[in-house]
Simulated scan of single mutants.
Amino acid sequence: MADTFLSIRQRFDRAGILLAGLCALHCVATIVVVSALGLGSHFLLSPEIHRFGLALALIIAAVAIGWGALKHRRAAPFVTAMTGLTFMGGALAIPHGAGEAILTLIGVVLVSAGHLLNLRPASRSD
């Protein structure tokens, strides 16, 4: 039973890392496509995409990071991921542009790092 829960948590951590990577790709692609071609700005810069992405990141992190924190009692994954989610939330509060992209990219890197830290103890002590 414990192995099943570990496997589910690891999948959530991996999903969180994938989501963070997709978010980073979206940020970079949006800047390149909108700047270079002027295409897709309505869709790519839509606040709904960013809100949905943050909500999904919050859910995945709450399950994976929260579960991991309860299991292995290490604060580093939790603090790292929550700091990243804070940066991502802060990016929603400012206008589109370089500042928003920088905050978002910092956030997704930190959230990914939190998930990676959360996976490390799973392979050693869980």
Results as ranks from 00 to 15, higher is better:
35 S>E: 08
64 A>K: 05
104 T>H: 05
43 F>N: 00
115 H>D: 12
89 G>N: 08
14 R>I: 13
44 L>N: 07
77 P>I: 08
36 A>S: 15
57 A>W: 00
111 V>P: 00
3 D>N: 06
97 G>N: 06
14 R>N: 00
28 V>S: 08
95 P>Y: 10
75 A>P: 04
14 R>H: 02
113 A>E: 01
50 H>S: 05
122 A>K: 05
34 V>H: 02
40 G>Y: 09
120 R>P: 00
61 A>M: 07
126 D>S: 11
26 H>K: 14
37 L>M: 13
13 D>L: 12
117 L>R: 06
17 I>D: 01
49 I>W: 09
44 L>A: 12
32 V>C: 03
42 H>Q: 11
101 A>K: 00
61 A>I: 05
47 P>S: 12
91 A>Y: 03
44 L>G: 06
43 F>D: 08
18 L>P: 01
24 A>C: 08
29 A>L: 15
125 S>H: 12
12 F>P: 00
110 L>M: 13
74 R>N: 13
108 V>G: 02
125 S>W: 13
35 S>M: 01
1 M>V: 04
6 L>F: 06
46 S>H: 02
56 L>S: 14
27 C>Q: 13
107 G>V: 04
62 A>K: 00
47 P>I: 10
114 G>C: 10
26 H>L: 14
69 A>N: 03
63 V>K: 03
125 S>P: 00
14 R>M: 09
22 L>K: 00
75 A>R: 14
40 G>K: 11
104 T>R: 04
19 L>F: 03
39 L>M: 10
83 T>E: 05
113 A>R: 04
126 D>M: 04
63 V>E: 02
64 A>L: 11
66 G>V: 14
119 L>Q: 14
57 A>E: 04
120 R>G: 00
28 V>G: 09
22 L>W: 04
55 A>I: 14
76 A>P: 02
39 L>R: 12
17 I>Y: 02
107 G>M: 07
61 A>F: 08
23 C>F: 13
106 I>D: 03
73 R>L: 09
65 I>N: 01
99 G>L: 01
15 A>I: 12
106 I>T: 11
16 G>Q: 12
84 G>D: 07
61 A>W: 03
98 A>V: 15
108 V>D: 03
102 I>W: 10
83 T>P: 02
103 L>G: 01
31 I>V: 10
32 V>T: 07
124 R>H: 10
100 E>T: 04
15 A>G: 01
57 A>F: 02
123 S>Q: 02
8 I>D: 06
49 I>H: 07
64 A>Y: 12
111 V>S: 08
85 L>D: 08
120 R>V: 06
31 I>W: 02
112 S>G: 14
111 V>W: 01
118 N>A: 15
51 R>K: 10
110 L>S: 05
69 A>H: 10
101 A>T: 06
9 R>A: 09
58 L>V: 08
28 V>H: 04
56 L>R: 07
42 H>D: 11
23 C>P: 00
86 T>F: 11
30 T>G: 10
62 A>S: 15
30 T>Q: 06
86 T>Y: 01
88 M>V: 09
69 A>T: 15
76 A>S: 14
